[in-house]
Amino acid sequence: MQVRFDHKTEVAPGIVSLFFEPLEPYRHIAGQFVEINLQHAHPDSRGIRRWFTLSSAPEEPLLSITTRYTGKNNSSFKRSFANLHKDTVLSFSPPEGDFTLPRDRHTKLIFVAGGIGVTPIHSMVNHLLLTGEQRDVRLIYGVNTLQDAIFMEVFDEYQADVELVVANPDKDWQGATGFITADTVLAATQSSNDYLVYLSGPEPMIEKLYKELTAAGVSGKRIKTDYFPGYVNV
């Protein structure tokens, strides 16, 4: 499917949302991802294709991709993606993935996000907000600094129960510090016998939490994972 680049917005230092207009009917489920084909000059060994989560909700008129830029180590793809000209036409694959909401609206949702891994969670929560659908939502969100916490206005408007865990806090920060632990996630499961845990973030973080949660007795059937390759820290 073809899309036309519309505009971009910096949502936090080094984090940018890019917005695209679909040029044909396009449906996706909140939380899914797409593959983008970006032809550009002098591609490096990492190629011209990338997988990205759609950070937009299905109800929004424009599709959005939200990504972090790490500086000089960005790939040729990322550099070209950051410098798209308005009205540039790109190819998106059909949406894929089952990191999506359960059918049962009574299931408690425990979202665990590390850094840019919050993007599919934003898609799902904004979908709930725009449709007026009420669910029990808990978000445990790990960031490097408080300034890295994005989409908070959507989570606040939905009145989600949010716990920020800040690795490098300002001196005035009074909330949780360090990194998300399995104990923090386990504590969130205690109030319900019907829950799903959604783990989304850097691959090392997700692998560690999944291993620790299942070792603590959480069934793998109650855990959904979404890995963000190429990221090591939040």
Rank of each mutant, 00 (worst) to 15 (best):
A160S: 11
L63C: 03
R138M: 06
Q134A: 14
M124Q: 15
T131I: 07
D104I: 00
H127W: 05
I150D: 06
A113F: 06
Q32H: 07
L84T: 02
S56K: 05
L128G: 09
H127P: 08
G97C: 04
S123E: 04
D87L: 07
A160R: 03
A113V: 00
R27G: 09
W51P: 01
F151T: 12
Q134S: 14
N144C: 06
L139M: 11
G117H: 11
S123H: 08
S45I: 07
F77R: 09
F77T: 05
V118K: 08
F155M: 11
P95A: 13
A57Q: 03
F33Y: 15
T70A: 11
H127V: 03
I121K: 12
N168Q: 14
R46I: 04
L54K: 11
T119N: 15
S45V: 09
R135Q: 06
I150S: 10
E35R: 14
S45Y: 07
E60F: 05
S76E: 02
N83P: 00
S123R: 07
D136I: 00
G47H: 08
F52G: 06
Y26S: 02
R138A: 07
G31Q: 00
P120M: 06
A30P: 12
Y26C: 01
K86R: 12
S93E: 01
G142R: 00
F99W: 08
D44N: 08
